[in-house]
């Protein structure tokens, strides 16, 4: 499974970089979503992929009976997904506000905070 995930991560990052080089802030955000999913997959793959039982312990036992999946990377990925979800929700609202207030989300045209100097 790991090689497949590695290739997938590579593909996601490649697509993400392509999108993030676009001038539109919206495409940039889509690229970021892809690359953050790639990061999540990296954590998941780095934690070791164990096909099999969920890490649950029988009542009364002190340790699981057989090999179980590593729960920690899953917890990390879940946390990262939740945080990423919140950040992107905010970023999308921001892109929307930028579109309505500034009339553009092309990064080259967003020069209100940093106005171009005269003569250029």
């Amino acid at each position: 499974m790991e090689p497949v995930l590695a290739v997938l991560v590579g593909l996601l990052v490649a697509a993400a970089v392509y999108l993030m080089l676009a001038r539109s802030f919206l495409l940039y955000l889509f690229g970021l979503i892809l690359v953050s999913n790639a990061a999540n997959l990296v954590i998941f793959a780095a934690g070791g992929l164990t096909p099999g039982a969920p890490p649950l312990i029988e009542t009364g036992a002190l340790a699981p009976a057989g090999p179980v999946a590593n729960a920690l990377p899953q917890a990390l990925v879940l946390t990262a997904i939740v945080i990423g979800f919140g950040l992107f929700a905010f970023a999308l609202v921001l892109a929307f506000r930028a579109m309505t207030e500034l009339g553009t989300i092309e990064s080259d045209e967003m020069r209100i905070a940093e106005p171009p100097e005269a003569g250029r």
Partner: peptide
């Protein structure tokens, strides 16, 4: 609450 805040804000805009 957070999701509804965002969604309502967007819907109303």
């Amino acid at each position: 609450g957070a999701i509804l805040t965002l969604v309502f804000a967007l819907e109303e805009e």
